[in-house]
Design a protein around this nucleic acid. Sequence first.
DNA 1: GCAAGGTC
Length: 820
Amino acid sequence: NEGGTAARKMVLTVLCVAEKPSLAESIARILSDGKHRSRKGISPVCSVHEYEGKFFGAPARFKVTSVAGHVYTMDFPRQYNSWDSVEPGELFDVSTQKMEANPKTHIVKHIATESKGIDHLVLWLDCDREGENICYEVIKTALPVMKPPPPGKTHTTIHRAKFSAITALDIKKAMDNLGAPNENEAKAVDVRQELDLKIGVAFTRFQTRFFQGKYGNLDSSLISFGPCQTPTLALCVKRHDEILSFVPKPFWSLGAQITIDGATLSLPSERGRMSDQKKATEIRNSLKNFKTATIVSVTAEKKSTSRPHALNTVEMLKGASAGLGISPHETTQKGHSQWNVYVRELLDKGFTKPEGGHDAGDHPPITPTRPAEDGELSGTSWRLYDFITRHFIGTLSPNLYYTRTKALIKIGEEVFSWSGNKIRTPGFTNVMHWRAMGDEVTPVELREGLEGSVVDVGLKEGETSPPDYLTESDLIGLMEKHGIGTDASMAVHINNICERRYVQIQGNQRMLVPTNLGIVLIHGYQKIDQELALPTLRSTMEKSIAMIASGQADSRAVLEQEKEAYRRKFQDFVTKIEKMDELFEATFSPLASSGRPFSKCGKCRRYMHYINLRPARLHCRTCNETYTLPSNGNIKLYKELKCPIDIFELVLFSTGSKGKGYPVCPMCYNHPPFDGILPGMACNTCPHPTCGHSVTSNAITGCPEEGCEGVLVLDATSAPRWKVGCNGCNLVSSFRDGVNEVRLEDDVCEECAARRLVVSFQKKEGMEDLRGCIVCDDALDALLETRLVCAYGSHEGSWPGAGQRTRARTWWERTWKERF
DNA sequence: GCAAGGTC
């Protein structure tokens, strides 16, 4: 059917890409009037929704899919990952690269596959600056494989959909008014990324290395700096300083007690607080002889409290923290159980992202999408759902109306008052009970001219009190005010400064109390360079970046100018770091008085002290030397065994009974005795030819893990639990129970060149010794309790396999042949 | 091991 083929050829293929999977589904449903078909994509997280329709009047097949946030992330080339061999200041000059943000999700491959041969690409990314940047990430992947416009035609094949809500109206309107992506906005994000990376990483590495291990009770392995986290911390420290420097002032307030129509009322003076004690006393004394109090006026004023505005994310975070004690981090956790479904629906369907970044106020941004019962959601999820739903109903409810009555009562010429509220209509407080107002009424009716008798006129002394620490809710408000972070990232910044132990959250009120470390850091920046700890650090940078976004400034020029400014700041910081160190010295204790006696120093033969804080380390008080130890595991003594090179006593590092274990010489670990070996050399990587703990003594074969350059070594340190593990990656496997001893032979397997081993068994096993190669002999391989558990998860199927034999042979030829 | 920004 020639005609049919020709007609099919005319059908255009249009790919629509949204920012996240749920949006792709919503968009497809709206545009296809629910007639879309869904299928899986290459990426495990993204589906593709297809339907037929018209594009610019022509018949078209539509595919709607998504990315999942940014496709690429910016980083330094790999060789700049080393903290030891790269000077942080150099980082400002390194050209950064974009790499796939989440390689496991295969988003790049997904987009490339779905873009192949398409006629048009429609970008449905969120209509904000980051979304504009993601547009170009998608274009970068899609354009090379798209069908070029037909010869002679110059129309664009790249389109931008602009929408502010996921509603049928908005989405269809966007499809009918396609435009072009905004390159300036995308470039602005590139510049922000590079600045954040370079500034953050340079300062973080430098100050971490400078202070790490310098003080005995400084418990932190990472001392970070960032254009958002540091100003956030500074806000907390500022309040702390205000509290400490607060000087209370005394004040006096006058009050009267009267009886009127048989009721007793306490009345404050209309003067309020008085700071002059002498004058206050005079007034009190002048009233001593008055026995009568007279009501001189009663006014009733009708008042109201407006129902709340619809919730946006920031208000939700504040409400959840202040009212429910749920952290912003937890509030935005939507990755588990039914919660996931709810918040996704809540955020997607009801969320408005008006253009220009201001809430137009015409949509309720966060709303419940269906009723749920208490039992359907677990603890925190239910409380948050309850809050959102009540708030939502509140926005649709009448205002609170009440009457405020105020009576003025004179004793002599001094005016006292009584006031109270009476609810007329509770309105939204019916459902938002936490905003409810109580009735305050007198037991008697107050009316003008009524007289009572004075029981007492007294003076109360008080003093002004300091402000409280910032609550989390306050902090979020301040971050918003100063433009620190976005609604999606504020929670992360707060979580960061908690995790890094710069602040602690205290009490039900969730107040942020800075730690010594947090205080010293901010005060240190203030001594060196005020600007580094100003709440405006972020917004100042944002202003330059906004110039790029609006097309008023050239992105390269802004980048260079900002980079230069921060390079100077960084260099200045480096030269003045002693100023910050003075504060550290005054706050933290010297190493010389920290830790407990542990293992012996090879230089002075005295006990070194073990400091079990991050980073774990040994300190020799006699030599005044510090030796850092591997972290994220336990450190134990190792039978007083010594390193043959420097006679330091070895210590044993282990990550648990099923985890890795190896001996470490504190000296070699910090100062490797062999050329070309970087710090961090444990005994299982030490090439010493005869030491029983070296890799030479314990090597079996090359690591079976694809791409790992490490060596599989025998680990006898937790015997009788014998293990094999890689000295390069996390791969480790135990021999099964009943194995008594594993020894390495001097010869190697003819087939694969792995070292042969001899396994002996406990008596109760009644088994002969087994001798052979762990790579080629199934009987030996079967003794390994678990298949090798590896860090990268790429090792599947049987180990050791045929591929391993080749790898083992290569490893032998290349590295170890001459050593045996 | 570092930043901040997406989303999961």
